[in-house]
């Protein structure tokens, strides 16, 4: 579930409010948004792609809270790690053509 919306990084663009499919965030006038409905989070990690400044962290644990610290996540290179791997940049997909999934179909194990 979503565990971090970093107040130091967030620029209050509200893209996460818009893009989260489960309406987890709530916009706040003249302020950064809040994680208002954590229990509705489906652990899809997609808000991390839309955040332009890597201010969000989704824990892979879908049914348990995880206590996280921003410094530690940053030190472990986990803030923005999914976005980078996917090649998203400033809320846009820029790595579509670099998808190497075709390797999964090379040995004929998987036949759709």
């Amino acid at each position: 579930m979503i565990e971090l919306l970093s107040p130091t990084r967030c620029i209050a663009c509200n893209l996460c409010v818009k893009a989260c499919p489960d309406h987890v965030f709530e916009a706040v006038e003249n302020d950064i948004p809040v994680i208002a409905r954590k229990e509705d989070c489906q652990t899809c990690f997609l808000c991390e792609l839309y955040c332009p400044v890597d201010a969000l962290y989704v824990s892979p644990l879908r049914d348990r809270d995880e206590i996280v610290s921003e410094e530690e996540l940053a030190a472990r290179g986990l803030l923005g790690s999914f976005r980078q791997r996917m090649g998203w940049d400033r809320s846009r997909p820029k790595g579509t053509h670099k998808d190497t999934s075709y390797r999964m179909f090379e040995d004929d194990k998987v036949k759709p």
């Binding site: 999914f82 996917m86 670099k98 075709y102 390797r103």
Partner: peptide, 21 residues
């Protein structure tokens, strides 16, 4: 090895539960 790399670069969400734990 070639496939491991292919999965990592192709479908990074597979690895989130692993890398993050």
């Amino acid at each position: 090895e070639r496939l491991r790399e292919g999965m990592r670069h192709g479908q990074p969400n597979i690895f989130l539960p692993f890398d993050r734990q």
